[in-house]
Amino acid sequence: MQDKLEDFIKENKEQFDTEVPRAEVWNKIQKGLDNSDNTSSSSTHWFWKVAVAVLLIAVAYLGSEKYFGADVNKESTAMEEFKELEIFYTQMISDKKTKLSEEVEAGEYFSFLEADIQSLDQNYEELKTTFENGQETPQLKSALVHLLKQKLYLIEKQLEILEETKSETSEGVSSL
């Protein structure tokens, strides 16, 4: 069926593209891409940075054990403080891990995180054994608490990344 109006629009459709976007749009896109590049590169390397830092700290403390004389007066206090802090951080870690398990069933970065946590746990158990077997120093207590904090940090960071990924996928591109 011939339709003059329909044919006119179809034949001249390029001429309907008269609007021009402002130059600022590209600047905003570029800024968005720069932020994205920084985020993605930091998200792939931070695991290793944290793991290496923790390992260095653990080795430094283990290696320096012989230089720290056990102060008898401070031993019981350090042990009590440690027990309190251990309960506190273990509870927080347990809560965050439950939240993380709810967010992710299985995934490569999750197993990557598990590997890092296992490494931290191993260091932690070694230090804890030393601490409980006659080396109840404030320095070792701090090292143990530091490891618990690192574990908590790893889980929290993973939760942040998951939330970012979730908000990105909800932009609708995945449905295309």
Binding site: P21, I29, L33, E171, V173, S174
Partner: peptide, 15 residues
């Protein structure tokens, strides 16, 4: 329209 343009190019480049 500009917001959509920005969002769409960013989505396309990221994905």
């Amino acid at each position: 329209a500009e917001d959509v343009l920005q969002e769409s190019f960013l989505s396309a480049f990221k994905n």
